[in-house]
């Protein structure tokens, strides 16, 4: 195991194609918060056709893309990555998937024409094409089982797919503001073991340092020393308070 606490390898899936909503911010946050604790960090970009080194990855990140880019990575994901990713999950690697990446981790994506495009099935969720896009700031109350403090997570959603959870996952949280998975059942995101799926970008991790540290501690398999998160939490609270008080200005 490389997760000895001294080294961390981040596997960034399709960094060039699936990086539309500032997903780079999630990588930067993982990198910096690990480095600030003295961990040596390596980012392995896993583009089309690349699978070398997947075995050494401690935490994967899979972001969102435009529809066209999502189509481009689809075959490659199934052909060159799916089995290796499943193996990595078996050995306890962590995984954060956002938006398009989240959908592709599920069982399938059903298009508006009713066609079902299979995902890689690492998360027990399914997604159906929706009509109107869900766009806006989101505040969720994280699942109590995660033990996050503060309890809230904040982000921005922009998706037309409606995702429904199966029995094998817990939601990442309950929506207090925004739409979340499908705008119907109040759930947002999905968690199973060390795999985290969500529609939240913004970027997600910078303003949610507690979630970042949870993912890092799972990836490194150890407790982490606290950092000074006053600026992170100020940004978190600023948007949380605005959205929950409904005082947004157009």
């Amino acid at each position: 195991m490389s997760a000895s606490g001294q080294r961390l390898t981040i596997g960034w899936l399709y960094s060039d194609l699936m990086n539309i909503y500032g997903d780079r911010g999630n990588i930067q946050t993982l990198v910096q918060r690990a480095r600030w604790r003295g961990v040596e960090v390596r980012v392995l970009e896993l583009g089309k056709g690349a699978s070398e080194g997947i075995e050494a990855v401690d935490v994967f990140f899979f972001g969102g893309g435009q529809d066209k880019e999502q189509e481009l990575v689809y075959d490659d994901l199934l052909e060159t990555k799916a089995i290796r990713l499943a193996n990595a999950m078996q050995r306890g690697a962590a995984f954060l998937a956002v938006c398009g990446g989240y959908q592709l981790l599920g069982h399938y994506y059903q298009t508006a024409q009713g066609e079902r495009l299979p995902g890689i099935g690492l998360l027990d969720v399914r997604t159906v094409a929706g009509g109107q896009r869900c766009i806006g700031d989101v505040v969720i109350e994280s699942d109590p089982g995660l033990g996050l403090q503060p309890r809230t997570l904040v982000g921005f959603e922009n998706h037309s797919g409606r995702t429904y959870l199966g029995e094998g996952v817990r939601p990442l949280g309950r929506v207090r503001r925004g739409n979340g998975n499908n705008g119907e059942d109040g759930s947002e995101g999905a968690v199973s073991g060390n795999i985290f799926g969500t529609y939240l970008h913004g970027s997600l991790l910078p303003k949610n340092p507690h979630l970042t540290d949870l993912i890092l501690s799972r990836a490194l398999n150890r407790e982490l020393d606290p950092l000074d998160d006053s600026l992170e939490l100020a940004a978190h609270n600023w948007i949380k308070d605005r959205e929950l008080s409904g005082s947004r200005r157009a």
Binding site: D23, G136, F156, G202, R249, A250
Partner: peptide
């Protein structure tokens, strides 16, 4: 992050 700016500020990470 008003409408004319774009409500999503995640682009600053790029």
């Amino acid at each position: 992050d008003r409408i004319a700016d774009g409500r999503d500020v995640s682009w600053i990470w790029d």
